[in-house]
Deep mutational scan, measured.
Amino acid sequence: TYTWNTKEEAKQAFKELLKEKRVPSNASWEQAMKMIINDPRYSALAKLSEKKQAFNAYKVQTE
């Protein structure tokens, strides 16, 4: 089980997950979700809006 003390740690864990699963920077949210949804870190960020925000930040960083 994973635990995160801060929102920032949770966001980092979520981005690490995207990186580890090699989600391409041109992937849509739907494509990315299919690649990461079974990992416990997918739940790091509770709100869908937070997940999408972190995903978009990840995409910008990896382009």
Rank of each mutant, 00 (worst) to 15 (best):
M35V: 05
T1N: 15
A57M: 10
E63D: 11
T62E: 14
R41Y: 01
K7D: 10
N56W: 14
Y58T: 02
T6H: 04
E63Y: 06
T3C: 15
W29Y: 06
F14A: 00
V23R: 01
E16M: 09
A46I: 08
E50D: 09
Y2E: 15
A54K: 01
E30I: 11
F55C: 04
R22E: 12
A54E: 10
E16S: 09
D39H: 02
E20L: 04
E20D: 14
Q61T: 11
I37R: 11
F55A: 02
K52I: 15
K34E: 12
I37K: 12
S28A: 06
T3I: 13
A27T: 10
S28R: 07
K11N: 15
T6E: 06
L17N: 00
P40Y: 14
F14R: 00
N5F: 13
L17T: 01
T1M: 14
T62R: 07
T62H: 13
K51N: 02
W29H: 01
Q12H: 10
R41P: 00
D39T: 00
E30N: 11
K34D: 08
L48C: 10
K7P: 15
E63N: 12
R41N: 02
E30K: 14
E63H: 12
K34S: 13
E16I: 05
W29M: 03
A32S: 03
N38S: 14
E30V: 09
S49L: 04
V60L: 13
N26V: 07
F14V: 01
A13C: 11
T1L: 09
N26T: 12
M35W: 05
A54Y: 05
E63W: 05
E50N: 04
A27E: 03
K34V: 11
E30R: 13
K47G: 10
D39L: 01
S25A: 13
A10Q: 08
F55S: 01
A57R: 10
E50C: 06
K34C: 12
M33K: 14
K59W: 04
P40E: 07
W4L: 02
E16L: 08
M33Y: 08
Q31V: 11
L18F: 04
P40M: 08
V23K: 03
M33R: 14
Y42Q: 01
D39F: 01
N38D: 12
K59S: 06
Y42S: 02
R22A: 09
N38V: 07
Q53W: 07
T62N: 11
